[in-house]
Design a protein around this nucleic acid. Structure first.
Ligand code: FES
Ligand code: FES
Lengths: 149, 149
DNA sequence: ACATTTTAGGATAAAAAACTCTTAATAGCG
DNA sequence: CGCTATTAAGAGTTTTTTATCCTAAAATGT
Protein backbone atom coordinates (compact mmCIF):
# COMPACT_ATOMS: atom_id res chain seq x y z
CA UNK A 1 0.00 0.00 0.00
CA UNK A 2 1.47 3.22 -1.09
CA UNK A 3 -0.68 5.45 1.07
CA UNK A 4 -1.48 4.60 4.68
CA UNK A 5 -5.07 3.81 5.48
CA UNK A 6 -5.17 7.04 7.44
CA UNK A 7 -4.12 8.92 4.34
CA UNK A 8 -6.70 7.14 2.19
CA UNK A 9 -9.41 8.22 4.61
CA UNK A 10 -8.13 11.79 4.57
CA UNK A 11 -8.11 11.90 0.79
CA UNK A 12 -11.61 10.54 0.49
CA UNK A 13 -12.89 12.92 3.13
CA UNK A 14 -11.42 15.92 1.36
CA UNK A 15 -12.80 14.62 -1.93
CA UNK A 16 -16.22 14.54 -0.36
CA UNK A 17 -15.92 18.03 1.04
CA UNK A 18 -14.58 19.42 -2.21
CA UNK A 19 -17.46 17.89 -4.12
CA UNK A 20 -19.99 19.88 -2.01
CA UNK A 21 -19.25 23.06 -3.86
CA UNK A 22 -22.03 25.34 -2.75
CA UNK A 23 -22.12 24.35 0.92
CA UNK A 24 -20.08 25.99 3.61
CA UNK A 25 -19.32 23.80 6.61
CA UNK A 26 -19.86 20.05 6.43
CA UNK A 27 -20.17 18.15 9.72
CA UNK A 28 -17.58 15.41 10.16
CA UNK A 29 -20.38 13.11 11.23
CA UNK A 30 -21.95 13.45 7.79
CA UNK A 31 -18.66 12.70 6.07
CA UNK A 32 -18.03 9.70 8.26
CA UNK A 33 -21.48 8.30 7.56
CA UNK A 34 -21.38 8.90 3.84
CA UNK A 35 -17.93 7.39 3.47
CA UNK A 36 -18.39 4.70 6.11
CA UNK A 37 -15.39 5.70 8.18
CA UNK A 38 -15.35 5.63 11.99
CA UNK A 39 -16.43 9.07 13.17
CA UNK A 40 -13.93 9.28 16.00
CA UNK A 41 -11.05 8.16 13.87
CA UNK A 42 -11.92 10.52 11.06
CA UNK A 43 -12.17 13.38 13.52
CA UNK A 44 -8.60 12.75 14.57
CA UNK A 45 -7.36 12.60 11.01
CA UNK A 46 -9.10 15.79 9.99
CA UNK A 47 -7.68 17.57 13.00
CA UNK A 48 -4.27 17.06 11.46
CA UNK A 49 -5.42 18.66 8.24
CA UNK A 50 -6.94 21.53 10.16
CA UNK A 51 -3.70 22.11 12.01
CA UNK A 52 -1.91 22.00 8.64
CA UNK A 53 -4.27 24.78 7.46
CA UNK A 54 -5.64 22.66 4.66
CA UNK A 55 -9.07 22.68 6.28
CA UNK A 56 -10.83 25.13 8.52
CA UNK A 57 -13.27 24.03 11.17
CA UNK A 58 -16.12 25.65 12.95
CA UNK A 59 -17.69 24.44 16.14
CA UNK A 60 -21.30 24.50 17.16
CA UNK A 61 -24.56 24.14 15.28
CA UNK A 62 -24.14 24.57 11.53
CA UNK A 63 -20.48 23.99 12.12
CA UNK A 64 -18.23 21.45 10.49
CA UNK A 65 -15.22 21.55 8.27
CA UNK A 66 -14.46 23.25 4.97
CA UNK A 67 -11.53 23.71 2.65
CA UNK A 68 -9.21 26.47 3.77
CA UNK A 69 -8.47 27.53 0.19
CA UNK A 70 -10.15 27.11 -3.19
CA UNK A 71 -10.14 23.50 -4.33
CA UNK A 72 -8.07 24.53 -7.35
CA UNK A 73 -5.14 25.31 -5.12
CA UNK A 74 -5.07 22.09 -3.08
CA UNK A 75 -3.29 19.13 -4.59
CA UNK A 76 -3.33 15.50 -3.57
CA UNK A 77 0.25 15.74 -2.46
CA UNK A 78 -0.68 18.41 0.09
CA UNK A 79 -2.80 15.83 1.87
CA UNK A 80 -0.38 12.96 1.41
CA UNK A 81 2.46 15.03 2.82
CA UNK A 82 0.41 16.32 5.74
CA UNK A 83 -0.55 12.80 6.78
CA UNK A 84 2.21 10.45 5.65
CA UNK A 85 5.09 12.87 5.15
CA UNK A 86 7.29 13.13 2.10
CA UNK A 87 9.00 9.81 2.40
CA UNK A 88 7.09 8.08 -0.38
CA UNK A 89 8.56 10.58 -2.82
CA UNK A 90 12.09 10.01 -1.60
CA UNK A 91 12.35 6.43 -0.43
CA UNK A 92 14.36 3.60 -1.95
CA UNK A 93 12.12 0.80 -3.12
CA UNK A 94 14.36 -1.64 -1.24
CA UNK A 95 14.14 0.42 1.93
CA UNK A 96 17.77 1.51 1.82
CA UNK A 97 18.83 4.81 3.35
CA UNK A 98 19.85 7.76 1.29
CA UNK A 99 18.22 6.95 -2.00
CA UNK A 100 19.93 9.04 -4.65
CA UNK A 101 21.82 8.97 -7.92
CA UNK A 102 25.17 8.82 -6.16
CA UNK A 103 24.40 5.60 -4.32
CA UNK A 104 21.87 3.75 -6.43
CA UNK A 105 20.47 0.34 -5.69
CA UNK A 106 19.94 -1.95 -8.68
CA UNK A 107 16.40 -0.69 -9.14
CA UNK A 108 17.05 2.97 -8.50
CA UNK A 109 16.86 4.28 -12.05
CA UNK A 110 13.73 2.40 -12.91
CA UNK A 111 12.07 3.15 -9.62
CA UNK A 112 12.89 6.83 -9.76
CA UNK A 113 11.06 7.15 -13.04
CA UNK A 114 7.95 5.55 -11.64
CA UNK A 115 8.15 7.43 -8.36
CA UNK A 116 8.41 10.69 -10.24
CA UNK A 117 5.23 9.85 -12.09
CA UNK A 118 3.46 9.25 -8.82
CA UNK A 119 4.72 12.52 -7.47
CA UNK A 120 3.73 14.28 -10.64
CA UNK A 121 0.24 12.82 -10.51
CA UNK A 122 -0.23 13.86 -6.91
CA UNK A 123 1.29 17.29 -7.43
CA UNK A 124 -0.71 18.19 -10.47
CA UNK A 125 -4.08 16.74 -9.50
CA UNK A 126 -6.14 19.29 -7.63
CA UNK A 127 -9.23 18.71 -5.59
CA UNK A 128 -11.18 20.83 -8.03
CA UNK A 129 -10.57 18.27 -10.76
CA UNK A 130 -11.46 15.40 -8.50
CA UNK A 131 -14.60 17.14 -7.28
CA UNK A 132 -15.73 17.55 -10.86
CA UNK A 133 -15.17 13.88 -11.56
CA UNK A 134 -17.18 12.91 -8.52
CA UNK A 135 -20.04 15.22 -9.33
CA UNK A 136 -20.34 13.90 -12.85
CA UNK A 137 -21.29 10.62 -11.20
CA UNK A 138 -18.87 8.36 -13.02
CA UNK A 139 -16.48 7.87 -10.10
CA UNK A 140 -16.89 6.57 -6.60
CA UNK A 141 -15.20 7.42 -3.32
CA UNK A 142 -16.86 4.69 -1.27
CA UNK A 143 -17.03 0.94 -1.45
CA UNK A 144 -20.50 1.06 -2.91
CA UNK A 145 -20.57 -0.26 -6.45
CA UNK A 146 -22.65 0.99 -9.31
CA UNK A 147 -25.98 -0.74 -9.59
CA UNK A 148 -26.39 -3.09 -12.50
CA UNK A 149 -28.66 -1.71 -15.18
CA UNK B 1 6.17 2.02 1.27
CA UNK B 2 5.16 -0.08 -1.62
CA UNK B 3 6.89 -3.26 -0.47
CA UNK B 4 6.78 -4.38 3.13
CA UNK B 5 10.04 -4.31 5.01
CA UNK B 6 9.90 -8.08 5.04
CA UNK B 7 9.71 -8.10 1.27
CA UNK B 8 12.59 -5.64 0.98
CA UNK B 9 14.72 -7.98 3.06
CA UNK B 10 13.72 -10.94 0.95
CA UNK B 11 14.59 -9.13 -2.27
CA UNK B 12 17.96 -8.04 -1.04
CA UNK B 13 18.76 -11.52 0.26
CA UNK B 14 17.91 -13.11 -3.06
CA UNK B 15 19.94 -10.41 -4.82
CA UNK B 16 22.88 -11.36 -2.70
CA UNK B 17 22.50 -15.06 -3.36
CA UNK B 18 22.03 -14.53 -7.08
CA UNK B 19 25.18 -12.44 -7.21
CA UNK B 20 27.27 -15.37 -5.89
CA UNK B 21 27.15 -17.16 -9.18
CA UNK B 22 29.74 -19.87 -8.76
CA UNK B 23 28.91 -20.87 -5.19
CA UNK B 24 26.39 -23.51 -4.25
CA UNK B 25 24.83 -23.09 -0.83
CA UNK B 26 25.18 -19.80 1.03
CA UNK B 27 24.59 -19.84 4.79
CA UNK B 28 21.82 -17.54 5.94
CA UNK B 29 24.15 -16.27 8.63
CA UNK B 30 26.49 -14.93 5.97
CA UNK B 31 23.65 -13.20 4.14
CA UNK B 32 22.35 -11.67 7.33
CA UNK B 33 25.76 -10.33 8.26
CA UNK B 34 26.57 -8.97 4.83
CA UNK B 35 23.21 -7.26 4.50
CA UNK B 36 22.89 -6.32 8.16
CA UNK B 37 19.55 -8.01 8.69
CA UNK B 38 18.64 -9.90 11.86
CA UNK B 39 19.60 -13.52 11.35
CA UNK B 40 16.53 -14.97 13.00
CA UNK B 41 14.17 -12.71 11.16
CA UNK B 42 15.81 -13.38 7.83
CA UNK B 43 15.63 -17.11 8.50
CA UNK B 44 11.91 -16.82 8.88
CA UNK B 45 11.52 -14.84 5.69
CA UNK B 46 13.64 -17.18 3.63
CA UNK B 47 11.69 -20.16 4.90
CA UNK B 48 8.71 -18.71 3.11
CA UNK B 49 10.67 -18.55 -0.12
CA UNK B 50 11.86 -22.10 0.39
CA UNK B 51 8.31 -23.30 0.86
CA UNK B 52 7.37 -21.40 -2.29
CA UNK B 53 10.11 -23.34 -4.13
CA UNK B 54 11.97 -20.21 -5.07
CA UNK B 55 14.92 -21.27 -2.93
CA UNK B 56 16.23 -24.64 -1.90
CA UNK B 57 17.89 -25.18 1.45
CA UNK B 58 20.33 -27.65 2.82
CA UNK B 59 20.91 -28.30 6.49
CA UNK B 60 24.13 -29.09 8.19
CA UNK B 61 27.74 -28.22 7.46
CA UNK B 62 28.32 -26.65 4.05
CA UNK B 63 24.58 -26.13 3.98
CA UNK B 64 22.74 -22.96 3.28
CA UNK B 65 20.33 -21.70 0.70
CA UNK B 66 20.48 -21.46 -3.06
CA UNK B 67 18.21 -20.49 -5.91
CA UNK B 68 15.88 -23.29 -6.91
CA UNK B 69 16.03 -22.31 -10.59
CA UNK B 70 18.42 -20.36 -12.79
CA UNK B 71 18.47 -16.67 -11.91
CA UNK B 72 17.23 -15.89 -15.43
CA UNK B 73 13.91 -17.50 -14.65
CA UNK B 74 13.17 -15.77 -11.34
CA UNK B 75 11.60 -12.35 -11.51
CA UNK B 76 11.20 -9.73 -8.81
CA UNK B 77 7.46 -10.27 -8.83
CA UNK B 78 7.96 -13.90 -7.86
CA UNK B 79 9.43 -12.72 -4.57
CA UNK B 80 7.03 -9.87 -4.06
CA UNK B 81 4.06 -12.18 -4.59
CA UNK B 82 5.46 -14.90 -2.33
CA UNK B 83 5.94 -12.44 0.53
CA UNK B 84 3.36 -9.69 0.14
CA UNK B 85 0.85 -11.36 -2.15
CA UNK B 86 -0.60 -9.87 -5.31
CA UNK B 87 -2.52 -7.07 -3.75
CA UNK B 88 -0.13 -4.29 -4.73
CA UNK B 89 -0.87 -5.10 -8.37
CA UNK B 90 -4.61 -5.01 -7.84
CA UNK B 91 -5.36 -2.53 -5.11
CA UNK B 92 -7.13 0.79 -5.37
CA UNK B 93 -4.87 3.65 -4.40
CA UNK B 94 -7.62 4.93 -2.12
CA UNK B 95 -8.01 1.54 -0.48
CA UNK B 96 -11.45 0.89 -1.96
CA UNK B 97 -12.61 -2.65 -2.59
CA UNK B 98 -12.94 -4.10 -6.04
CA UNK B 99 -10.66 -1.83 -7.99
CA UNK B 100 -11.57 -2.16 -11.65
CA UNK B 101 -12.67 -0.32 -14.75
CA UNK B 102 -16.34 -0.89 -13.98
CA UNK B 103 -16.21 0.90 -10.65
CA UNK B 104 -13.39 3.39 -10.88
CA UNK B 105 -12.43 5.87 -8.21
CA UNK B 106 -11.37 9.32 -9.42
CA UNK B 107 -7.75 8.24 -9.64
CA UNK B 108 -8.31 4.83 -11.11
CA UNK B 109 -7.23 5.47 -14.69
CA UNK B 110 -4.10 7.34 -13.74
CA UNK B 111 -3.19 4.93 -10.99
CA UNK B 112 -3.73 1.89 -13.16
CA UNK B 113 -1.19 3.17 -15.65
CA UNK B 114 1.43 3.64 -12.98
CA UNK B 115 0.62 0.38 -11.26
CA UNK B 116 0.99 -1.46 -14.54
CA UNK B 117 4.44 0.01 -14.95
CA UNK B 118 5.40 -1.25 -11.51
CA UNK B 119 4.07 -4.66 -12.35
CA UNK B 120 5.86 -4.63 -15.67
CA UNK B 121 9.13 -3.67 -14.02
CA UNK B 122 8.82 -6.42 -11.46
CA UNK B 123 7.68 -9.00 -13.97
CA UNK B 124 10.37 -8.36 -16.51
CA UNK B 125 13.35 -7.84 -14.19
CA UNK B 126 15.08 -11.13 -13.45
CA UNK B 127 17.57 -11.85 -10.76
CA UNK B 128 20.17 -12.57 -13.41
CA UNK B 129 20.05 -8.95 -14.52
CA UNK B 130 20.20 -7.67 -11.00
CA UNK B 131 23.07 -9.99 -10.13
CA UNK B 132 25.03 -8.61 -13.05
CA UNK B 133 24.42 -5.07 -11.90
CA UNK B 134 25.62 -5.90 -8.42
CA UNK B 135 28.72 -7.67 -9.61
CA UNK B 136 29.75 -4.76 -11.80
CA UNK B 137 30.08 -2.84 -8.55
CA UNK B 138 27.99 0.20 -9.46
CA UNK B 139 24.98 -0.69 -7.37
CA UNK B 140 24.50 -1.39 -3.69
CA UNK B 141 22.16 -3.67 -1.78
CA UNK B 142 23.13 -2.48 1.69
CA UNK B 143 23.09 0.82 3.49
CA UNK B 144 26.80 1.25 3.01
CA UNK B 145 27.58 4.17 0.76
CA UNK B 146 30.37 4.40 -1.76
CA UNK B 147 33.53 5.83 -0.32
CA UNK B 148 34.41 9.32 -1.40
CA UNK B 149 37.30 9.40 -3.78
C1' DA C 1 -28.55 31.34 31.07
C1' DC C 2 -29.15 26.96 29.02
C1' DA C 3 -29.52 23.19 25.79
C1' DT C 4 -27.69 21.54 21.54
C1' DT C 5 -24.41 20.65 18.03
C1' DT C 6 -20.03 20.20 16.80
C1' DT C 7 -14.76 20.04 16.92
C1' DA C 8 -10.46 19.09 20.09
C1' DG C 9 -7.73 16.20 22.46
C1' DG C 10 -6.21 12.73 25.71
C1' DA C 11 -6.27 7.93 27.07
C1' DT C 12 -6.70 3.41 25.87
C1' DA C 13 -7.45 -0.83 23.20
C1' DA C 14 -7.06 -3.96 19.34
C1' DA C 15 -4.70 -5.57 15.34
C1' DA C 16 -0.91 -5.96 12.37
C1' DA C 17 3.91 -5.80 11.39
C1' DA C 18 8.49 -6.34 12.76
C1' DC C 19 11.67 -8.52 15.46
C1' DT C 20 13.76 -12.03 19.12
C1' DC C 21 14.57 -16.26 21.36
C1' DT C 22 14.49 -21.10 22.16
C1' DT C 23 14.34 -25.61 20.69
C1' DA C 24 14.28 -29.15 17.20
C1' DA C 25 15.91 -31.47 12.99
C1' DT C 26 19.48 -32.73 9.69
C1' DA C 27 23.88 -33.56 7.80
C1' DG C 28 28.85 -34.15 7.85
C1' DC C 29 33.08 -35.34 10.27
C1' DG C 30 36.39 -37.27 13.41
C1' DC D 1 28.75 -42.41 18.30
C1' DG D 2 29.03 -37.66 19.60
C1' DC D 3 30.24 -32.96 18.18
C1' DT D 4 29.42 -29.05 15.31
C1' DA D 5 27.38 -26.30 11.61
C1' DT D 6 23.42 -25.27 9.70
C1' DT D 7 18.31 -24.64 8.53
C1' DA D 8 13.24 -25.32 10.41
C1' DA D 9 9.70 -24.28 13.36
C1' DG D 10 7.25 -21.93 16.42
C1' DA D 11 6.41 -19.35 20.68
C1' DG D 12 6.95 -14.88 22.56
C1' DT D 13 7.94 -9.75 22.56
C1' DT D 14 8.08 -5.06 20.94
C1' DT D 15 6.69 -1.43 17.95
C1' DT D 16 3.62 0.72 14.80
C1' DT D 17 -0.76 1.37 12.88
C1' DT D 18 -5.48 1.55 13.28
C1' DA D 19 -9.50 2.27 15.94
C1' DT D 20 -12.49 3.41 20.06
C1' DC D 21 -14.03 5.99 23.97
C1' DC D 22 -14.62 9.72 26.95
C1' DT D 23 -14.48 14.44 28.47
C1' DA D 24 -13.76 19.26 27.41
C1' DA D 25 -14.32 23.45 24.78
C1' DA D 26 -16.55 26.40 21.47
C1' DA D 27 -20.39 28.30 18.93
C1' DT D 28 -25.24 28.96 18.17
C1' DG D 29 -30.13 29.59 18.96
C1' DT D 30 -33.79 30.12 22.24
S1 FES E 1 18.55 3.77 -3.93
FE1 FES E 1 16.99 2.28 -4.19
S2 FES E 1 15.50 3.39 -5.26
FE2 FES E 1 17.05 4.88 -4.98
S1 FES F 1 -10.76 1.96 -8.04
FE1 FES F 1 -9.29 3.27 -7.17
S2 FES F 1 -7.54 2.76 -8.26
FE2 FES F 1 -8.99 1.43 -9.13
Amino acid sequence: MILSKTCDYAMRAVFYIAAQKERKFIPIREVSEKLDISFHFLTKILQVLTRAHILVSFKGPNGGIALACPAESISLSDISKAIDGSKIYEECILGLDQCGDENPCPLHNEWKRIRDQIQNLFDKTTFAEVAEKINCGEFRITNLLKKNK
